[in-house]
Write a protein that binds this DNA or RNA. Structure first.
Length: 676
DNA sequence: AGCACGCCGACT
DNA sequence: GTCGGCGTGCTC
């Protein structure tokens, strides 16, 4: 028999495919497109995705190698999944292998195949185990708006993108669940994908889903899972056994052959953007995938991204408003602004805030203080000579961590003991400047010695599973005052919480990043939404949100005071349009890093010095805001266009030219960057 | 990107 | 005499 040649995509930055020989034999079934093959590559062995099977090849006979094995145990990935990877590869300007291969569970990629047969048997057990442990619950009645949202989404057929816009407590989750229920009931094998920003912070949602759909298999997909477990859940999605798939951004690249609905909760959340490797937007890929499959996609948020908001204003997305709070007695919290120029804080707390906390303590209610800065103090300083605790490897301060007596760089991980005296002049009186969550905790405990003060941040929840335990402590009511970073803003309903305070959120107002205020608004709205979610207590006052700021007249805080997302978003959009910024134009970023900043800048200058392209703006190279991280200097070059296709076409050509430049600079391009 | 090969400087 | 620095070249 004639040999067969397989065209295979591999996880390598080389922008081409590789042909391998496959020897036919009566024992081995013919390989198929979409199957995974194990091949020799250079001196390594790798797993690749079969993209074509043919009887000929252009590769010279002395170069071609043979396939080591084909993973017949894993059913082939279908053409639509491959098309998704191909789209992402083209759009983000990377080879398809760099998209497709990392999207597969590791156990399918390692040279020694794990026993898939055993795992497939395990799948059935997994489903049963989950069924035993839940108590089924029935769906609550929907209010008029929720009902209409479910009706609208389920009445149309074909591709339709929806923006489900509703404040915290308006019952978006219930719309997700009942929409999912209808789609699942409609077809024997249908699957629903639900994306959440961070799965570890939403155990409640997973619980709800399992209770509401007791007969159905639920798969979860996120980066915190063990490889064996990951394989099981991925396979259950891939084989169609899992009907509901709950996952983080990486789940958008999973194989879902019977997908009928995609839901993206908190669609504005920055964690939908992958920030390393293939820098994809799970939200954008979700919309593309829904379009490809001709199915609805629901983007839910109280504070939609300006991209999504603009789509809905332009009529490209269908807007569904939830304005009533679904929980009967729940009312919006009262937002008050405290001017810290007039009321000077001590220990970071104004007198008004301290009184508000005291009132909650007396009533046995909880308070939440939001301070987005972990550690004790962001820097220490010598008054005598001006020395500051700077990281020698990064353009950043070493943060003081008092509990473990360390100075720590939050960017490169460097740590050292807190010096007893100033390293340059010997002064023993070093000052902690500024305030992190640890210092706030210390101050609060001093003011309220009897109160149970509790801190939740990346430091207090470093151990696996400890975040969930920490949240449980708060839910149980074992906490009076909760201090937290952005970790506490997401997902959790605190039933006894009636006071939320934001300390010192001002820095984002003047950030270089034009998206900083959009993010701050979303974050404050979200954290404000933690208060009083279970409804008003008998005879109680509405929950309160206090913002301590030096800029009490800033429009962002005024919008927040009036719960006016729409006004805020419309104003920002107006500004963005005037200034020709996203979402009205499209951007790509060329980043370069080298030992010396000058080397990186020079590379970017050379890159910028290309033939002019109509409709493309190439800006000047600039050092990144945080120039040096871990002894590497970084610079970037922004490319803009008002036409997405024009930008794409330019990038394709440009990157080919850049690859030809002989350089030691490490560089890469990011499409639709969100952190500038 | 890995991973080799290859040709020049300081070590047991 | 070797270990190892990173320049250059290749991966079906």
């Amino acid at each position: 028999m004639e040999p067969i040649y397989l065209t295979i995509a591999l996880d390598t930055p080389l922008d081409r495919l590789f042909d391998y020989r496959w020897e036919p034999s009566p024992d081995n079934p013919l390989p198929q497109v979409g199957q995974i093959a194990l091949v020799p590559f250079g001196r390594q062995e790798m797993a690749g995705l079969i993209l074509a099977v043919h009887s000929q090849t252009d590769v010279p006979a002395d170069k071609i190698k043979s396939v080591l094995a084909v993973r017949h145990q894993c059913p082939a990935l279908d053409a639509r999944w491959i098309a998704l990877c191909q789209f992402a590869a083209n759009y983000y300007q990377r080879p398809i292998g760099e998209v497709a291969i990392p999207a597969l569970p590791k156990n399918l990629r390692v040279p020694k195949p794990t026993s898939l047969d055993r795992n497939l048997k395990k799948l059935a057990k997994l489903a049963l185990a989950k069924l035993d442990s839940v108590e089924p619950s029935s769906p609550p009645d929907l209010n008029r708006e929720q009902h209409q949202a479910v009706e609208t989404i389920t009445s149309k057929s074909g591709f339709a993108p929806y923006l489900l816009h509703g404040v915290t407590g308006s019952g978006k989750t219930e719309v997700y669940l009942q929409t999912a229920a209808r789609m699942l009931a409609r077809q024997e094998q249908s699957q629903v994908l639900i994306l959440v920003p961070e799965i570890n912070l939403t155990p409640q949602l997973e619980g709800n889903i399992r209770q509401r759909f007791p007969g159905l298999q639920v798969a979860t997909l996120h980066s915190g899972m063990a490889e064996g477990e990951r394989l099981l859940h991925w396979l259950s999605s891939h084989t169609g056994q899992a009907r509901i798939i709950l996952g983080t951004r990486l789940a958008i690249l999973s194989s879902l052959p019977h997908l009928q609905l995609i839901i993206i909760d908190e669609e504005h959340d920055p964690s939908y953007k992958q920030q390393e490797g293939l820098r994809y937007s799970a939200r954008d890929l979700a919309v593309w995938r829904a379009h490809q499959l001709g199915i609805p996609v629901v983007l839910g948020s109280a504070t939609p991204s300006l991209e999504t908001w603009q789509h809905s204003k332009a009529g490209r997305y269908i807007k569904l408003e939830l304005q009533e709070r679904a929980v009967q007695a729940a009312v919006l919290p009262i937002v008050k602004i405290i001017n810290t120029e007039r009321e000077k804080p001590s220990e970071g707390l104004t007198q008004r805030l301290i009184s508000a906390i005291r009132l909650r303590l007396e009533k046995g209610e909880q308070s939440l203080l939001f301070l987005n800065r972990r550690g004790y103090a962001p820097v220490i300083h010598c008054d005598a000579c001006g020395w500051m605790s700077n990281c020698t490897r990064c353009t950043a301060h070493l943060v003081m961590h008092k509990l473990d007596k360390k100075l720590r760089c939050h960017h490169c991980g460097w740590e050292q003991r807190i010096p007893r005296a100033c390293p340059t002049c010997g002064n023993v009186d070093l000052q902690a400047l500024g305030r992190g969550t640890q210092r706030l905790e210390e101050g609060l405990q001093a003011i309220f010695p009897e109160a149970r003060v509790f801190r939740i941040d990346a430091d207090s929840t470093r151990l696996k599973g400890s975040a969930e335990a920490a949240f449980d402590t708060v839910h149980r009511g074992d906490v009076d005052i909760l201090i937290g970073t952005q970790m506490v803003a997401k997902g959790h309903d605190f039933k006894n919480l009636t006071l939320v305070a934001a300390l010192n959120p001002d820095s984002a107002l003047f950030s270089q990043d034009f998206r900083a205020s959009e993010r701050l608004f979303a974050q404050l709205m979200q954290v404000a939404g933690r208060a009083g979610r279970a409804g008003q207590k008998e005879g109680g006052n509405p929950s309160e949100v206090l913002i301590q700021t030096r800029y009490p007249d800033h429009p962002l805080y005024h919008a927040l005071m009036h719960h006016n997302y729409q006004g805020f978003a419309d104003d920002l959009l107006e500004e963005r349009q005037q200034a020709a910024m996203p979402p009205f134009i499209y951007q790509a970023l060329l980043r370069a890093e080298a030992k010396e900043l000058e080397t990186a800048i020079l590379f970017l200058k050379e890159a910028a010095h290309c033939t002019a392209h109509h409709g493309i703006t190439i800006n000047d190279p600039i050092p990144m805001t945080m120039t040096r991280v871990h002894n590497v200097d970084r610079a970037q070059l922004l490319v803009e266009s008002n036409s997405r296709p024009a930008l794409q076409a330019f990038l394709r050509e440009w990157l080919a030219d850049l690859r030809a430049i002989k350089t030691r600079v490490k560089w890469g391009v990011e499409i639709d960057p969100v952190d500038i």
